[in-house]
């Protein structure tokens, strides 16, 4: 039972995570560490490792693009940005999210 609850929580977090990443990038281009910092503030993720596979996948799906930028403190950094496809996807997600929030609020009676 406990594992099931954990599982649902993890699923919920995962669904939201991508939405959040896209939202962060919609504001401005960002380096992985910047994204992580924001996500950590929001307590969405705890470890950085989580992000890399996600970013790679989103990029492969055509939602994200990146450019290299020289760094003073190490290897060149990848700065991610939202592609037009990503922007469209994010818009769709925004609608879905609002619908979801409405649905949850209605059913849980939190309004």
């Amino acid at each position: 039972m406990a594992t099931n609850t954990e599982n649902i929580k993890a699923q919920m977090r995962k669904g939201v995570l991508e939405y959040c990443i896209l939202s962060i990038l919609a504001q401005h281009d960002a380096y992985a560490s910047d994204i992580i910092a924001k996500l950590k503030d929001a307590k969405l993720i705890v470890v950085e490792g989580t992000l890399y596979p996600l970013l790679t996948r989103l990029k492969n799906d055509g939602l994200l693009g990146y450019r290299w930028e020289e760094s003073t403190s190490g290897p060149p950094r990848k700065y991610y940005r939202l592609t037009p496809v990503g922007q469209a996807f994010l818009n769709e997600m925004n609608t879905t999210w609002e619908e979801l929030v409405h649905a949850v609020n209605t059913t849980t009676g939190k309004k």
Binding site: Q11, E18, T50, P53, L54
Partner: peptide
């Protein structure tokens, strides 16, 4: 902890 992310999503 993080490998599952890319798989299940």
């Amino acid at each position: 902890a993080f490998a599952g992310e890319s798989e299940s999503s």
